[in-house]
Design a protein around this nucleic acid. Structure first.
Lengths: 185, 185
DNA sequence: CTCTGTGAAACCTTTCACAGCG
DNA sequence: CGCTGTGAAAGGTTTCACAGAG
């Protein structure tokens, strides 16, 4: 049984169709996680979610800091989607005196010079939404504050020690990928 | 000669180091574009940029529409980064009467029921920043309005005709990828 | 009979290593 | 001598096809 709300299981064929890939892709990938399907019925959805969350290490609530409360940063602070994956924006920082002290979505904006408190607060993850010019220097402060993972929204390459992981997502570049697929006319 | 500001050429080794990949990767990839390097000196930077822009079809200014002027949508409207790739946000749409008629960054927010004007305005690209519940139905309206490419910020899969290209970028999912790389402790 | 899990085959990407141009 | 461009080798991923569990 593999269908809409209330279903306990989903087959590789159904799941593949749903996300637009081939069904053996799903089976091969899941097989690397061990035996988690039931022959004849498919994959138990709850078990699958638990397994994926445990692989991604998002079983417990993860604290993240936001650095740079401009337009994008404010949008991120108000973004409801993080809760789905169990994220909690535990702190926000900016340089602008007009912003420091204000609260957005119940998170108080701190002076960026106080980044070191992340170490004490045991915040491992940071979302970097500062202008490109400030990206590398802010990254270095984050690394000093003990941050181990950075989600970088600036369009530049960040140089970090090997133990720190950076994921860059450049909105303008994503948009720039679209015209390639569109026939002229 | 391949170095800082003012340089005309960059070698595969330099470029590779700069973006964190292997140099033969660069040479092999560029070789598919034809002969564009100069043995002994490297790749002419200006020529390289032109070539990449022509492949991506971003040599002329591309018009894009924004749909959904919430927190994220407003941030996108004020985002200066699109100009780098020659994008122009030519129109913005929302459902909320409080927002319709207002201007952000010199773009007037229109009623979403007027999406059809995109056809007349020859806008091929749309940035979708509406709540997940509205994503599929808004997509269908965009397709009817002749949009050929959609940059989707909602976390859901969009079903579209084959001739339409969707690129999804889920901010929360990007953040969810980070903990995997971080050793427990 | 349905659907998983998996070897084997096909396909694709990355790296090596070097001939040869500027 | 420096650096590109490229065959060949290595490495990785996707698809096929089917045995066998439920």
């Amino acid at each position: 049984m593999a269908n809409e709300a209330g279903a306990l299981c989903i087959s590789s064929t159904n799941l593949a169709e749903f996300i637009g890939v081939n069904s053996c892709q799903i089976r091969k990938d899941f097989s690397y996680f061990g035996y988690l399907g039931i022959r004849g019925s498919g994959y138990n959805i709850e078990k699958l979610i638990k397994k994926i969350k445990s692989i991604l290490k998002i079983t417990v609530v993860q604290k993240a800091a936001l650095v740079g409360v401009g337009n994008l940063g404010s949008a991120i602070l108000s973004f409801p989607g993080f809760a789905v994956y169990g994220f909690n924006i535990a702190a926000a920082f900016d340089v602008s005196p007009q912003k420091i002290g204000k609260k957005i979505n119940n998170v108080k904006i701190e002076n960026i010079s106080k980044l070191w408190i992340l170490k004490r607060k045991k915040v491992n993850l940071a979302i970097l939404a500062v202008p490109s010019e400030a990206a590398q220097s802010t990254t270095e402060k984050l690394v000093k504050a003990g941050v181990k993972g950075i989600l970088n929204f600036s369009s530049c390459y960040l140089s970090v020690p090997k133990k720190v992981k950076v994921i860059t997502t450049d909105i303008a570049m994503e948009l720039a990928r679209l015209p390639y697929y569109i026939p002229a006319g």
